[in-house]
Amino acid sequence: MSNLNKTTISMIINNENYDDITVETRQHLGDFLRDLGFKGTHLGCEQGACGACNVLVDGESVRSCLMLAVQANGKKITTVEGLNSSEMEIVKDCFVKNNAMQCGFCSSGMLMTTYEIVKSNRKYSREEIREMISGNYCRCTGYQAIVDAVEDSLNKINVGV
């Protein structure tokens, strides 16, 4: 390739193949996904602190602002637009029912962290839920509705039994 600051990558996003996309190597995954139209991934700080940009890479939540798009070459990405497993549908219902968001800017990141919680398939106390989501900043809610929603989800999904 002529320009060393660009490279061509492929990945699977929400179970669809995205092949041979040329990106600037400096571009982080969050911007890359947003440029592709996955606007549900939000950027709140671009320094790893707020968690709004969390996406799943090979099934693990990561900060998409702290990962280069090129690092995701060949990987499986899930954005909020693709968070459609039956468990996550229950989680989303519980978020709606508990009013666990106001402006919604933090929500996709919160859902990614909730995905991790659900995935671990064990019981959580409210305090443990608070610990898990302590890397996700929400300025609107008092966090309580989010804790309620996660707790409610775990009960409904019946994890850890």
Partner: peptide, 20 residues
């Protein structure tokens, strides 16, 4: 306490913010 309709939209990542 009627659930907010827009909440579902926001949770699907379908909110429309200026940077979008």
């Amino acid at each position: 306490s009627v659930p907010r309709e827009r909440a579902k939209k926001l949770l699907e990542g379908k909110g429309k913010y200026v940077d979008d």
